[in-house]
Design a protein around this nucleic acid. Structure first.
Lengths: 244, 244
DNA sequence: CGGAAACTTGAAGCCATTCAACGGGGGTGG
DNA sequence: CCACCCCCGTTGAATGGCTTCAAGTTTCCG
């Protein structure tokens, strides 16, 4: 358990250091702020829709979704939260969101109050830069999702999303072999890609036939990332930092 | 001309004050930073794709688009920039964007260097809060666009987008009557909504038949915003500030 | 007056949805 | 430990929304 928590810190550190060189005191002051992680089971709602938040979230382990519900009960997944990723950096300055944050798998998360976050921006400029970078990257992910939905056909959408998620796992410092396993159902994919479950299933089969992925119950395994990227006409430029 | 410039400042001030109470010195220090506006003609590219930026943009007058091109030359409009709105707040911390910013109409824009922007965050906290708010709202707009593309059918997409643009004009302090006129072609709508031009045309006709809008060459006029919102099942909650 | 850009219309066809039903694995409770 | 059930995945068939192709009209502008 404490082993697990240490592992989680790893993902966060790895991600933060991916684009800004941080020093011991930066990391320590940030991790001190995180406090005790909280645990949630799959499908639990961490942040209900329409509720003003005073805390941001950092995922320690597991995956979350940010999604919005329709009047008819249909769901649009806006983005995923992977270990080491954040949600709600803008909390406090903006009224309640209409989207909710829910656990996709069992998850462990830290909470950071807006006040502490603001203080951190004054006191740890390198860390603030790293967090700003993450916010910028998040916006880029949303833009990419718009392009996926607006411009791509179904198999490209699927391949592109899977390739993105793979690279985001890698960016969390997870070993390539483990990163290739995405804990996501076809229903989740459907709700992300704006496709029906039935059609998503057929597209998954088509993609499996290319050899890029191999199916599994409640997860999808990336068998050949290069091939997947070719199907998607994928470019990871928007994911990579300046490496500075 | 100088009259026009004063008018433009109005939109920016109005927008900033929509959510944070600002004082004379805040506004003055910000406007001093803006310097001389630059002018561009419709269809000119202000920020080419794939080029690292050192300056953010503020629109003084006219409309811009942020869009991304496909390998086949198809275009996805990610968002619009209306008078008083900003792009590129995250510049500097993130490598080159793949999207471009182009003028939809003739536009006048100010540029702000990343360095000045950073300085401002240290010196004018209320202004910094207002800008952060705008960034948060921008992210919300992107999320809403994802929901539109993923969850809505074509007539809802169109109605929802038009309603949003109307409210964004209003938020810029433009008179309701003027705000009802959106300087946008059916091709632009098609590229925003992920629909073909032909189908967009038919959807525009369907929407016209409801009495919500009336068509015009190179623009679309909102005839009945309430009816439009009903067609869209629109909620403007994500646009409104806390009014603080 | 000519040409380009925006808009319009019709028809054919495909991609994706919807409805409906079934299989299969894993977890839960008796 | 087995039986049951639920969720996930799978398949077929019918329908329809949207695309594509193709051609034509209108309006604005040079």
């Amino acid at each position: 358990m404490s082993n697990k928590r240490k592992l989680s810190h790893t993902a966060l550190r790895y991600r933060l250091q991916g684009f800004v060189r941080l020093y011991g005191d930066d990391i320590q002051s940030f991790e001190a702020m995180l406090g005790e992680p909280r645990e949630f089971s799959a499908d639990e709602v961490l942040v209900p829709a329409g509720q003003q938040q005073s805390h941001a979230l950092v995922v320690a382990s597991g995956w979350c979704t940010r999604s919005q519900m329709d009047a008819d009960g249909r769901r649009q997944i806006i983005n995923f939260l992977l270990p080491g990723e954040m949600a709600g950096v803008f909390l406090g300055v903006y009224p309640a969101a209409e989207y909710q944050v829910a656990a996709l798998t069992d998850v462990t998360v830290w909470r950071i109050s807006g006040a502490e976050l603001a203080k951190l921006f004054g006191q740890a400029p390198r860390l603030a830069l790293a967090l700003t970078w993450m916010a910028a990257r998040d916006e880029r992910l949303l833009e990419q999702q718009i392009v996926r939905l607006g411009l791509r056909d179904s198999i490209e959408r699927l391949a592109d999303l899977l390739a993105e998620l793979y690279h985001r796992q890698i960016a969390g410092g997870i070993a390539a072999k483990q990163a290739a396993e995405l804990p996501i159902t076809q229903s989740d994919l459907a709700d992300t890609l704006g496709l029906s479950r039935v059609h998503t299933n057929r597209v998954c089969q088509a993609l499996t036939e290319t050899g890029a992925v191999s199916p599994g119950r409640g997860m999808i395994q990336i068998a050949d990332i290069k091939r997947l990227e070719r199907v998607a006409a994928f470019s990871d430029a928007y994911l990579n930092g300046n490496g500075a």
